[in-house]
Design a protein around this nucleic acid. Structure first.
Lengths: 287, 287
DNA sequence: GCAAACTCTGCTGTTGGATGAGAGTTTGAT
DNA sequence: ATCAAACTCTCATCCAACAGCAGAGTTTGC
């Protein structure tokens, strides 16, 4: 009934429509003291807003977009200090830079995972032996704390924990977005002693920035064998070694087991992996 | 008391520590069926996990980082379909690109706001007349729907709504991060008729990509007067016109009122603005 | 054998709203 | 003036993804 006091003012619904917010939001802001309606009908409790209050609402939404909480905003509004706002903005700009870096890292991690899936899908049949040129690789390694060839998969998982710790220390994305590898020293391998030396992840050039425990696997020809079962590793590795000897290849470095984990999530009993065992080799040049 | 069944398994606390999650999180995942403990003691209800379950937990956390909800993840896990996961990852990569763009836009918006505050802080005293070179500016405009010189500030706010609509249509950041302006056509202005022609925001080059309602304000010399009160605009504009005439400047385009809004948030009764009125001028070249 | 550390269930709290019930109010068309 | 439609009020509940607590029971290590 009152048409005197709210002349030129907007009902909550109109205010909401004009500013593209919901009525609930306006009520919340009122309750929190962020944006009090210009006039409230004391009898009906109806809220009426002044169109000029849009600027304050703008401010609130802008600060929200910048990631400030409503109570932070309330604080800013109460203090009426532009310098403080400027500080928040500058801080926000730094945050944005940080977020951009994180986003980039995430992007790379996702790419790696996609590649890994593709590769898994297209890897050759189990038992296939091949001779491949493999480009230089950068790895982040940890020494093996237990012999998982003897102690089984649980020991392997424990060993990986150490690697995980290193990833966390370096603020790197978690293990799932990398492929894993283990090595046996050349000497042990040639004498057919399967003693794990290192466990590692394969990264890219940028890994070099992360200081310790980084190693480069040189580019070159590798004798490889593919298999899909952790349990057959030693058998296949020996087969590969025999193959190298029969063909007169010279072993040129540590034995490597590369693990494309795919997603070992559907069966908790066993890692569902695909392995590519690798022996770096060189050849007698024909002179 | 039971030490048979949980041999080699981890209590919830150890599992939490190893994976750097909280106990509460593990309990939640159990409840939701995302990660059921390997063994539960039926008498005590104690949960025991297998170290191999870390891989599943890894997956959950990886997907969480990618922004999937727990129920989405549950879905993925139940379907056991790697293709689906790959799709999600590709989708996520697109999202990341989008986010990067948004972040960049936000960064620019924040920068603009900071600049605006700085400028406000350092603007000269009210009433100051100056002659300035102003560089080319890009504006996004809307025609004025009402004469706010006659109808007052409420009409002005209504006019701005139209501009706001355009910003939203173009997915541009909200009004607060731009400075506003209004114009009067050269002819009207010279004949001292204050009829608003356009209302607009000042943007940057990129604005050109946004199609319609974009206009360029040419670079050149402008006669300017600063003031801090909306109500004095016409008075000051006339003064500025008089000044131009007395000095023999030739008016070379539309009259512009640039509004540095600062933050008009602390006093809801009135926009707390700082205005720079501008008349583009040219001079008789001395020959 | 005993204390310390751990774990259980069930509850509440968090943020920034969304949604809904049930009652009352305003608006616009007749 | 009337009546329905549209609007608004308060109060309550719900969301996601946990965090934290209380009070009771359990395991561990010395």
């Amino acid at each position: 009934m009152k048409t005197e006091k709210n002349r030129g003012l907007l009902s909550i619904g109109k205010m909401a429509k004009v500013n593209r917010v919901t009525i609930a939001t306006l009520r919340l802001y009122d309750e929190m003291g962020l944006l009090r309606p210009s006039y409230i009908d004391t009898e009906t409790g109806y809220r009426y807003y002044d169109i000029r209050q849009t600027s304050r609402l703008d401010f609130i939404r802008y600060m929200r977009e910048l990631g400030l909480s409503l109570s932070d905003i309330q604080d800013l509004l109460q203090r009426e200090d532009v310098t403080l706002i400027e500080e928040k903005l500058i801080e926000k700009n730094n945050q944005i830079h940080q977020q951009m870096r994180e986003l980039k890292a995430m992007h790379e991690a996702v790419d790696r995972t996609i590649q890994s899936i593709e590769r898994f899908r297209k890897s050759p049949e189990s038992g296939t032996i091949s001779l491949e040129f493999i480009d230089r690789r950068y790895i982040l390694f940890a020494p093996c704390v237990s012999n998982f060839y003897e102690m089984g998969i649980v020991a392997y998982e424990e060993t990986i924990q150490e690697l995980r710790t290193q990833l966390i220390e370096r603020n790197l994305p978690q293990i799932l977005s990398y492929s894993l590898g283990t090595s046996v020293t050349q000497q042990d391998f040639e004498e057919e002693r399967f003693i794990p030396d290192q466990v590692f992840i394969f990264g890219d050039r940028q890994l070099q920035e992360y200081g310790n425990n980084i190693r480069i696997l040189d580019s070159g020809m590798y004798a490889c064998i593919y298999l899909d079962n952790f349990d057959d590793e030693i058998k296949c590795a020996k087969e590969l070694l025999k193959y190298c000897r029969e063909n007169g290849y010279t072993i040129a470095g540590d034995y490597i087991c590369e693990e494309l984990t795919e997603f070992n999530i559907f069966d908790t009993r066993q890692r569902n992996m695909f392995l590519r065992l690798q022996i770096p080799v060189t050849f007698q040049k024909k002179t």
